[in-house]
Each structure stands twice: as structure tokens, then as C-alpha cells.
Nucleic acid binder design. Sequence first.
DNA 1: ATGAAAGCGCTAACAT
DNA 2: ATGTTAGCGCTTTCAT
Lengths: 339, 339
Amino acid sequence: MGNRGPTLEDVAREAGVSRATVSRVVNGVRNVAPGIQEAVREAIARTGYAPNQAARSLVTRRTGAVALVLSATGGSFTARLFSDPFFGRVVDGVLPVLRERAVQPVLLVSESEPARLQLVDYLRRGGADGALVVPLDEDDPLPGMLVAAGLPTVLFGRPRPGVRCGWVDLDNAAGARLAAEHLWAAGRRRPAVVAAPESAPAARERLDGFTAALAARGAVAVPVERGRYTEESGRDAMARLWARDPGIDAVFAANDLMARGACRFLAERGVAVPEAVAVVGFDDSTAARDAAPPLTTVRQPVEEMASAMARLLLARLDAGTPRTGSRLFEPVLVVRESA
Amino acid sequence: MGNRGPTLEDVAREAGVSRATVSRVVNGVRNVAPGIQEAVREAIARTGYAPNQAARSLVTRRTGAVALVLSATGGSFTARLFSDPFFGRVVDGVLPVLRERAVQPVLLVSESEPARLQLVDYLRRGGADGALVVPLDEDDPLPGMLVAAGLPTVLFGRPRPGVRCGWVDLDNAAGARLAAEHLWAAGRRRPAVVAAPESAPAARERLDGFTAALAARGAVAVPVERGRYTEESGRDAMARLWARDPGIDAVFAANDLMARGACRFLAERGVAVPEAVAVVGFDDSTAARDAAPPLTTVRQPVEEMASAMARLLLARLDAGTPRTGSRLFEPVLVVRESA
DNA sequence: ATGAAAGCGCTAACAT
DNA sequence: ATGTTAGCGCTTTCAT
């Protein structure tokens, strides 16, 4: 049930001043005599007053909250959501920026069509002042819907054409190129790829970037199998690759978890990593560092990117203009033991 | 920026009716002539109207949102939050129940002292109608703060004494007993425990329940090492146990992830599981099924418990009474290959 | 520096 | 079945 608590009026009466004065004190506006300020604060403490956000929002048109939306179009993805360190890193990057500005971060998950509709509704009604969206699939209509609803929005990953909003992204193709060049330079001539679902644009850039870099060096067709981001699916994809061609001498995986899965399969078969097969992951998540052997991987500065996303949104909210900036990040190859 | 959109007034003018009628249509109240309903719907579509939640909440004292709070007192726990399948299961259990009732689920994380304060403030101001709280540490003051603030609250795990609110919980001690009896019946006489941090009440019940059940059967002191819920920490704890006593013939871990870590250590040492050492996990998360070998584990019906938590809260919100029910769940031993 | 008063957009009596 | 009207609790001019 709602705040059946004390109102500004109650505090005002208690302190012997007007509502306006209490409001000024609560909102830290200057021009209130120190003595009165003190009296008001005491009255607030005595009454246990807490402002009613609905009433406040009604006039300020602000909620003081920002949504962090994790969205997928496919079925239940909470399993991935809460097992891939990637999302934790996004959250880690976003929280401090919002907290510093006393903006309440609100996590929303959109895992199905009805959920998406409900979520858009919630946000259109003013559930939050803006949205930071992490879409997992390219064909996700959510960003477009939010932008169309006029909600200030910033994406992790570039928006599809026609959707005008801010974004941060990694130069995924450049990252894949880094991996390809590293493997090539190490003399690997028969590389394969454990790719992610086609629906993810970032994943496609990684795959295309890798094969393109290799093709430029004269490599022939690179075998590709797809996983679903999990370690398990990476293991299975590697098994399929191996069944197709046990002559493979290098593997590039679209994320660290799948790279670990590939390593696991190879270990099961007694294939030495990196001696017989070199493995390169992507992200440089904690999963890469903790792997056995530690993974060589393409570092994606997720926390930084997430912080930038939050700052971009806050800047837009401050400015009040409908324009938002964007930022592209450069990947770095982190060489460990697996390649 | 706030909804600078059309208001009820605009729609009413457009449809040639009064605000009240539009409100009735929007809220699905009967007693509106079909023809008028139609006209209003068209006007809504034409204007692109979306209700202003702040205005609505101001009068209804409802936000239509419920918070799912993940709370820890220790430092950054988002790493665990987004790597332990446990939370995903909680979310999976809660979402459908809320969605069905058109209540917007809002995830809030409370990972530090300032975050906690900000969160309590947000909720006190009416950020959500109630809270489902998953506290990770026994000494977490958050549940008490929310209850004191008068917010309808239901916990995952029993509240500390003095905090009156609803809860759901697993009979952890019974689960540990199940594990102990299984191992004992299999002839294991030198079991050890990979426990969780002492601060978690559920974890303590598991440890105490296990040692108590064993003591009742005449077992001597059981060696204990603690992990931090992650696979990595479970591996390390197992390594310490092994260093202390390589005669161990069984291990009970406080969650599946740590059980996996224990298995990994044993595999590295060439110790056969379950032949030489039997391993029992806790939770029956996906991590148990996917482990090599598949884990024998104590099943905690997390999704069901989470659904129950949500229903308990909704029932209380419907009733408007300050009382909330609670529910204790019984664990089941799932026997697979590791023990 | 403080108070009075006018809304913000909506729902819910109450009237008709 | 529909319209009129009185607030919900707050911020914010505008006076003083």
C-alpha cells in the first residue's frame, strides 16, 4: 500500500513554517535561514517524512531513475543473463556512474514479446527518465520502440539503421583481425571459428572480421560452428569442428566462455593447448583469466563502455536536447598462454 | 525528459467525451457504451496517448511495479550475481508470476552501504509497491530497513529475529542431512565439507546440518574449508582439504559451483570421482547437470520458492493487510554420478 | 527569506 | 451511461 506517511504539510505544521519552506529544505535550495533549516530537519526526523515521488514527478517530470535494460528476442535468456560475466561487467560499469549522481539504477529484463510490450509501456508512462539498453539480437525491436516513444536511449552496440539514438560499441572487426594476425604470425594455417548466433551483430562482425583478415593473407575456407555463448555450447561446437577436421591448428571463439568450452573438449581428447591447437577468446572476462590454460583473448573494455553509456545518457538528460553522442572503443589483444 | 505527450484531456477533446470516460476506457472499467469505447480507442491511437504514471500513482497510491532486490553487504558482488545460476533461477521464478498480473518487475541491486541507503530512499518514496528481497548475508540490515519503512516485503530466507515480514525458505539442515545419510549409507566414513562464508545463514545451516547428522552416526571431526560460492574458490578449498588430509573419501559442498570446483581439483590430481572420493553438491542448478561427472546434489526448488515469494507479496498487496504468509520448502536428494 | 496559490495529470466519488 | 468536481502531494512562480 502507498505511503500512508506524513506529507510536506505535516512537516510544515510541525515546524511552524509553510510547505514551500519545507520543500526548499528538502531539495537543498538556498535562501533558507539556518535556524529554520534546523527546525525543519528536526520536524522531518520527528515525523519520519519521506517525499512522495509520484507527486514530485508529476511536477518535475523526472523520476530520478534510469533503466538498464537487458533484452533478447529469443526464449528464456535469464539462464545466459546470469551465467555470462559480460552482464555483470556492464552492471559494474553503469552503477557507479549513476550512483554518483544519485540516480537510481533500475534493471529491467525483456525476455519475451509480452515482457517487451509491458516494459515499453512502463517506460512510456514515465517509469524512468531514460534507458541504457543492451540488446542481444540484431532484430530486437525494443530500441526502436523506445526511441519512437521519445525516451532518451543509449545502446550497447550500434542501432539498426533508422533508429536514432546514442550508442557505444567496440570495433569488433578490428578485434577479430587482431586475433587472426596473431594466429597467422604464429604460423597457424588451419584455423577454425566457434561463432555466436547469427542474430547478434557484434558476433557477426567478429566472424566476418576474422575470415576477412585471414582471406587477405591467402587462407582458404575457415570452418565455422556456432555456439550459444555458454561454455557447454562452445565445447559442443568444438566437438563438431573436430569431427569435421582434426587437422585444425587454431580456434577463434566469439567469447571467452565458448573458448573455455573448446579448451575443455581438446583437453578431453588429449590435444595440447596451445602446442597442437591455439585458442583465442573474446572479451577478456574473468573467465579468460581463470581458464586452464589462461586464455589469450581480445579485450573488450566492457566496464568502460558501460560507464560511457551511462554518462552519455546523463549528459543528454542534463542538456534536455534530443541529441546523444556515441563512442567507438578499440580492442586490444591480451596474450596469455592459450595462443 | 518527462512525457511532454498528450494528456487525458487531449484524448477527451479528440474523442468528444469527458476525461472521466477516457479514464474508464483506459482502465477497462465497464459501463461505457461500445460506440464511445471505440471512439476513445481511436482517439488514443491518433494522439499516441500514454497515461502518466506519476499522476496515476498520486491518487491510487500504487506504482504497478514490484522490486526484486539482490542484496549483499560485502564489496562488489555483481561478479557473483552474474555468474551463479542461482539468481537466474530466482528471476525465472519471479518474472512469470508478476508478468501475469501485469506488475512490472524491477531489479535493484544493493552492493554497498551507499547503494543500500539510496535504494531504501527510492523505495520509501514509492518507487515500487513492495519488495522481494534476496539477502546474501545474515547481517544485512536491508530487510529490517524496508520493513521499518512500512514497505510490504518478502524474503528469500528467514528474517533475522525482530524483523516481521513474509519469507520462503528451504529446510537447509534437512538437505544437508540427506547428503550426509547418502554418503554414510554408501560407506563413506571420512567426509569433508566445502562450506560457504559464515555470514550466510543458509550456508551455516547446511554445514551444521551435515556435521550434526554425521556426529549422530558416530563420525569424528569433519574437516571444513570455505569458499565464496564460485567454482574457482571451490577448487581452492578442495585443494586445502586435500593438503590437510588426502584420506578424505567424500565431499559435501554448499553449492553446485563449488562442488564442480572440487571435482576439478580431484580430476587434476587423478583422483577418481566417485570411486575414490564421492562429491555431493547443493541446489541442483544447471551447473550440476552439466558437470563432469554429473553431480549428485540436494535439490532446492528455487524457481518454485521464488514464485511463491512473488505470490505471497501480491496476496498481501491485494489484501492490504500488514500480514504476510511464509512457506518452508523441503529439499530432495538428486542422485547422479558423483556420489 | 518566507508564504500564498496555482497547477502537474489522473482517479473516484457524486450527480445526473 | 456519462459528466462534474474535488483532491492526491509536491514544486514553483509570484508576492511580500
